[in-house]
């Protein structure tokens, strides 16, 4: 087998043990191939990094949250006091709540476009979107949730998340939107999810996370990008 075929098989995870050993032996002697492989591995790493840049953050956050639960409670009072003093000493930062309130709008229903007066029987998805369109987010969220459990379609989860945010159930909204890896599947709702996650973190005054998501939106080709760029200017 030619050496480049072995490399190709390496990246598509098809090497047998024997072929892996063979490739290792070739690499020891072949300077050029070794150099090529090195560059290819670095490119792979860069792509992986691009895809998973929020994952590392997510796991670190998970560590902090579990720590908070177990150890920080006795110190909560002391921290509250420090924050109290801090807020007297330091001038207030940007008004995150205000920015959020000015920017947040529910995402339009782009899935279920109902033709009014149609004689077709309504299915449960249509009903869920009607609730959403009518601003009845509490019931809409419940409907999206039970639909998602039956058919895990990305948009059901997305609208559930937005519906939660619309009711100021911000923490739950974040959880819903963060429970799915939009980028990986190239979901149509990737940028929109990043947008809402950015806004929601802003509302929670978690500025580092907010920026991480908004920067993705700002760099995207979506029409949300100028809004994200604007918002980021206020955060710097």
């Amino acid at each position: 087998m030619k050496k480049h075929e072995l490399i190709e098989k390496y990246f598509s995870n098809q090497l047998s043990d024997e072929e892996f050993g063979q490739l290792e032996q070739i690499l020891e002697k072949d300077d050029q191939l070794r150099d090529e492989l090195y560059n290819e591995l670095e490119v792979k790493r860069a792509i992986v990094h691009e895809k998973h840049s929020t994952l590392k953050n997510r796991l670190q956050e998970l560590d902090q949250n579990t720590k908070k639960k177990t150890r920080w409670i006795p110190y909560a009072a002391a921290i509250a006091l420090l924050i109290g003093i801090g807020s007297i000493l330091y001038a207030p930062g940007p008004d995150y709540q205000g920015l959020y309130a000015d920017t947040f709008e529910v995402y339009p229903n782009v899935i279920n476009l109902v033709t009014r007066g149609g004689a077709e029987p309504k299915n449960s998805e249509t009903i869920a979107f009607e609730l959403y369109d009518a601003g009845n987010y509490d019931e809409a969220v419940r409907a999206f949730d039970s639909l998602y459990k039956k058919h895990p379609k990305d948009y059901l989860l997305f609208y559930k998340g937005v519906g939660l945010l619309a009711q100021d159930r911000t923490e739950e909204g974040i959880q819903a939107l963060q429970s799915y890896d939009w980028e990986l599947d190239g979901s149509d709702f990737t940028t929109a999810s990043n947008w809402y996650l950015g806004l929601a973190h802003l509302k929670q005054e978690q500025v580092v996370q907010a920026k991480l998501f908004l920067e993705k939106v700002a760099a995207s080709e979506s029409n949300l990008n100028t809004q994200a760029q604007e918002l980021l200017k206020h955060l710097d």
Partner: peptide, 27 residues
């Protein structure tokens, strides 16, 4: 490991895996 002009590739035979070492700024 495999070495190449200051570049290092780590090998795991168990996992059938190559992983590079590089400076963060280069990455």
């Amino acid at each position: 490991k495999l070495y190449h002009e200051g570049q290092i590739i780590h090998i795991s035979e168990e996992m059938q895996l190559f992983e590079t070492e590089a400076l963060e700024e280069q990455r």
